[in-house]
Each structure stands twice: as structure tokens, then as C-alpha cells.
Design a protein around this nucleic acid. Structure first.
Lengths: 342, 342
DNA sequence: TGTTACATTGCAAACGTTTGAGATATAAAT
DNA sequence: ATTTATATCTCAAACGTTTGCAATGTAACA
């Protein structure tokens, strides 16, 4: 049943050689038009399909690209992947996805596996920037496989990245809270070994300074990206001698947790307390008390990463162009921080 | 820089043949222990990496599996993919993802592309069951590549599937609404050419009949899975001579739209009107007025699909085992339909 | 010493394609 | 008629593995 037919089968049928068949199918100009047509026609009639694996082995290119993310079931990463897939699909690339679950070991393992599987490029979001074991990354670079970071990046020579301006995201959000009349603004931060969280924090801090508000170390709390974590954090804040009157959270989930807890304590939002999140998760705009949040345009980020990859691939120049694309964050102001419109 | 080293390089260095190297590395018992150790050691020292493409060409197995979904940036599909990836990763499979955007043409194209890329199996959610052009599916089956449907399935001989019991999902949800005292229950349905929507509708209908409520054709509205569509639909319902007092929606998004519109019209939920959705999207439990919804356990569905694939692969028996796994839906009762707890 | 058995290793084909270099044929130019 | 150029095609190697079969070596046994 369904035996694989190769260019040899076509060649035998037409009494020509496999090389001619190959050239005919690849539109090589050295082939006479009439034979080309004949080959193409009989190839079709014999239901010939090119063996991609053989081609990959011969050419060394698999037409696969690898994408590594912490996890795929998050709106942000799923959207980025969608962008990547949509941009690369027309170019004949298939997308292989890997998850790290925030584990540097898994990250390394995925990198090695992808390279060993001969992918033509790797697009990834780093899990832990402090991980000094950059062996896997250099393994990628040695093999001359384009490597592109998106969102969570790491400074490595010759590696391009597509990120958003997290500093600005933190800045404009904090500024917005100040403009709404908030006097003491707290901050929920993620793991600051990741540059995105560091930058959001610095943007927050700078906005405070620029507006004459003294920075208070006590107001910065390390949270995880979960509702529960947000609840715990806001409770810690409320037990301070001088609790804040606003929160800029690096996570929409933590922001939601804070809001739920504040409501439980009958603290009115946004009148007494304002909250803003980050990522523009779908639920933030669905809530009755919709949540102000920073949009990271994940779809665009994915497409842009893919485009950077396309520029990079095929450039066999040893002079790698290191491209740094920085997208602009967009603050979506909603009820959780809109005192003016009430 | 970084020349590819092959088993021939190792062989040359040790003055043995490549075949021996290959066997040594693959733990073939015909190789003397001492040479095996020697080979392994020098392979490591030379930084040898097996060429997966060559292996794939030789064996005909790529160690890739394809996953086709309508779109990846939906919580449900992303979670299924996560489940698939986590189950298959330990077995050395990589996951290639493709999107159809509900377009049967794209679906066919993806099927052909994946087969041509020599994947070892295809796990997919169908876009349109009425699509009579089953050529691509048979192409897959001819090649003897395991094909497994998840969630949205299609009846094809020899194809396994992993779904949830949508009929039951529709039934228990409707029954729940009846138990809460709702007398006239409307239904938002998706494209009934898809079995999942047909089944949910039938479950809904059956529950009505079993409880002495006459089925009313007017109460069934075809919606898209969007907030906007839900708003339009509920408005249509409210303009009927005898509007319903509850909605069982096949989409959480449409359910949300309905709720927003009902609130706008000052109709109290759940006192005057109950709403229940389907899919258990994250936002349903985050809302202040949390939304009752049917959980489809996507993670479990993904893992189960992967397991079915693993059972199927390697079974070169022409007798294909056609396995139909049906998971149980779980109703998460929340505020939007809980009159009793108020 | 010759035979047998067994453990190791080598040889070469196979997977299906691409591609540089050589071969043949055809036509044009001298 | 001989050379030159060009168009078209064939040969064979290469990509890096795996694997059936043959070959070698060694030890035991008769």
C-alpha cells in the first residue's frame, strides 16, 4: 500500500536519470522545456511528493524553527506564538514549540534538543537571566543558528531581540496613577533577575522621583503572577503603618488578587485606592470593574521576531547583525484607576 | 568553525569502521564492552552529536508530531497543546503547531504539509465537519500515520478521538438552570455542523423535555464566540413576546456579552435571569459576578490524546485500533446562576 | 589438527535528494 | 570538414545514519 515514490521511479519511467528529474522539478534552466513539462506531468500523475527529510539532510536546513517559552497556556505567549506562526507560515517554516516552566535546566535541554533537531532558527523568551550557564546559548551561536529573544531578553553578543519598553511601561503607568491623585504608590514586582521586571520597577521609581514622591522600599513587594500572591501582597501592604493608596502591579493576576482583597475589606476602587496591572490579559477588560493595564502587543511582537529571523537567516556573513527592536507599550486606562471619569 | 563531526570521524580516529561506532553508540550487544566504552568516550571528547535528520531519513521517523488547531491563542487550545507537549516531551517527540483559522482550505494544506514533513502522528481539532473533501484525511491514513481528533471530531474509520461528553455538558447545565427555578431557558449555539455544538444543543433540548419544559425554537440563537455576538443575541431574545429567564451559552464570551447587556438593562442576575457558559475560560471565575461554566479539562484532554497517539504509534498492525475516549464535563456553578446561595 | 561455535568487527547498500563535473549531441562558425 | 560554442543530459559523490550479511578472530572441543 502506498509505496513511497522517488525521483528514481519517475526517472525510470521516462528513461532519464534522477538528476534530470530533480533539476526539472526545481526549475533548473539547464533542462529543456519539453522534458521539464513531461517530468512535472508524470510526477503529478504518479503522485510524487518530495521527501522533506532527504532534502533537509542534503541541504542541512530543516525548514523548522524552534520557539521556547516558559509555558504556552498563557495569553501573552500564545499570542506571540500565533504571530510567529502567521508570519513564518507563508515562508514555508513550521513552528516547533517547547516549554521551560521557568526551569533553566529545561531551557538548556530545549536548546540542545532543538539544535540537534537541526532547526533553522530559535526564537525564545528567557527564563532566568542570572543563569550563568550560557553554554547552551553559545552552542546555538557556534552552529550559526539565528537566535532571537522576545520579551524576556539576555545580553549576548550577536543575539537580536524584540522587546517592549518596559521602563516606559512602568513609567507611564505610575505617572498615570499620580495624575489620578494617588500619593503613595506601591509596586508588585516579579523576579528582578529578569530584565523586564527590573525595568518596570525602574520606570516606576523614576516616575516617582520625577514627580516629587519619595521612593519607599517597603512599598515594593515581590509577587508571583497569581491571584493568591496578589492577595497576600496587598494584605502585607495594608498592615504597614502608612499603607499606600495605589498599586502598580507587574502582573494582571496579582492586580486582580489585590482588587478582590480590597473589595473584601470594603475599600472603594478607584475612589480610595487605584490599581493598575501589566499585560492586558483578556479578563482585565471584561471585569465589571475593568482593570487598567499595559498592553504588550504580543501578536506584533511575534510577527516582528519572525521578521528579524527572516532577515537573519540566509545571511551567511560572519558579521552577524545584532538587531534590537523595542516596541512601545500602550496603557489601557480602565475603571480600576479612573477617578476622573466617575 | 565548528565542523560537523560524524561517526566516520570517530571511526577514523579509532581505526575502526563507522558501523562499529554506530553500533557502539546504540548499545548493540554485538560490540565488545571495551570498544563500546572507548567509542563513547572519544565521541564525547570530540563533541559528537547525532544528526537527527540523517536518522530521520534512514528510519523514516522524524520524532515530530503535528498539532492542528483553529487558533493557538485561545485558552482552551493552548491548554490542550500544553498537555500534549508535556506528555510527549519525555518520549522525545517535538510538537509542531499549525493553525487553521477555521478555514477548511488551511486545514487541508496543513495536513498535506505535515505529512510531507514526515511527522509521526497528527493530533487535531477539526474546523468544519461538513467539509466533504476528506481527501487530506485519507492521505494521512494511507501513509499509515496515526491521526487523533480531540474535542472537535469527525467520524472516519480508523481514527481515534478524545472528546468530552458535550451532550451531558449541555444536559447538566440546563438541568442546573431548571433546578434554580428558571422556567424558560434560551440557548446560544455555535455552528451546528460541528458535533460539539450539536451535542450541547441536544443535551439542552433533552433536559428541557425530561423536565416538562416545551422546547421553543425561538429560544435557540446561533452566535459566534464573542462578547459582541452575545450582546446582539440577548437583545434579540429580550424583544420576543415572552422573553426567557435564563441562557445556556455554548460560549463563555457570548455569555459574558449577554450578562453585560442584561446589567445595562438593569435586569438582576441571577435573581431575574440566570446565565451559564461553556469552556470555563479563566475570566469566568475572576468576574465579581462569576459565571457558571462547563469545564472541558483541556490539559487532561491533551495528555489523553498524546497517550492515545503513543498507543497507536509503533503498532504496525494493519488492524488499526479505533479508540474513542470520552471525558466527563464538569459544571462549575458560580454566581451567575446561583439563586440558592443568595 | 581440524571442526565447531561464538563473539566481534567490517563491507556495502540503503534512505531520497542535490549538484559539480563530465559526456553527448546539435548547431553555428571558420 | 574541422573547430567552437551551446544546450541538454548523465555520472557519481555527498549529506550521516542504520543494518543484513560476510569476514575475521578466538577459544573450546573432538
Amino acid at each position: 500500500m502506498s509505496e513511497k515514490i522517488t525521483i528514481y521511479d519517475i526517472a525510470k519511467k521516462l528513461n532519464i536519470t534522477a538528476a534530470t528529474v530533480s533539476r526539472a522539478l526545481n526549475n533548473n534552466p539547464k533542462i529543456k522545456e519539453s522534458t521539464r513539462e513531461l517530468v512535472i506531468k508524470t510526477a503529478a500523475s504518479m503522485n510524487y511528493k518530495q521527501n522533506k527529510l532527504a532534502l533537509a539532510l542534503k541541504s542541512g536546513r530543516s525548514n523548522n524553527i524552534g520557539v521556547i517559552v516558559p509555558r504556552i497556556d498563557s495569553n501573552f505567549f500564545a499570542s506571540v506564538i500565533r504571530g510567529i506562526e502567521e508570519e513564518l507560515h507563508p515562508h514555508g517554516y513550521q513552528v516547533i514549540i517547547c516549554q521551560t516552566h521557568e526551569d533553566p535546566k529545561r531551557e538548556n535541554e530545549n536548546l540542545y534538543t532543538l539544535i540537534d533537531a537541526q532547526v533553522d532558527g530559535i526564537l525564545m523568551s528567557v527564563t532566568d537571566i542570572t543563569n550563568e550557564n550560557t553554554g547552551a546559548f553559545h552552542y546555538v551561536l557556534e552552529k550559526n543558528v539565528p537566535l532571537i529573544f522576545f520579551d524576556r531578553s539576555k545580553h549576548i553578543d550577536g543575539v537580536s531581540s524584540v522587546t517592549i519598553n518596559d521602563f516606559k511601561g512602568g513609567y507611564i503607568t505610575t505617572k498615570h496613577l499620580i495624575d489620578e491623585g494617588c500619593k503613595s504608590i506601591a509596586h508588585f514586582s516579579g523576579d528582578q533577575s529578569l530584565e523586564i521586571f527590573k525595568s518596570r520597577f525602574l520606570g516606576y521609581k523614576q516616575a516617582l522621583l520625577d514627580n516629587g514622591i519619595t521612593f519607599n522600599e517597603e512599598y515594593v513587594i515581590r509577587t508571583k503572577s497569581s491571584v493568591e500572591s496578589g492577595k497576600e501582597a496587598v494584605n502585607a501592604l495594608l498592615q504597614l503603618k502608612t499603607p499606600p493608596d495605589a498599586i502598580f502591579s507587574s502582573s494582571d493576576f496579582a492586580a486582580l488578587g489585590a482588587i478582590q482583597e480590597l473589595k473584601d475589606k470594603n475599600i472603594s476602587i478607584p475612589k480610595e485606592f487605584c490599581v493598575a496591572g501589566f499585560s492586558n490579559e483578556p479578563f482585565t477588560k471584561f471585569m465589571e470593574l475593568s482593570i487598567t493595564s499595559v498592553d504588550q502587543s504580543p501578536l506584533e511582537m511575534g510577527k516582528m521576531s519572525a521578521r528579524v529571523f527572516l532577515e537573519q537567516v540566509d545571511k551567511t556573513d560572519t558579521i552577524k547583525i545584532e538587531k534590537k527592536v523595542v516596541l512601545a507599550p500602550e496603557l489601557h486606562i480602565r475603571k480600576s484607576s479612573s477617578r476622573s471619569t466617575i
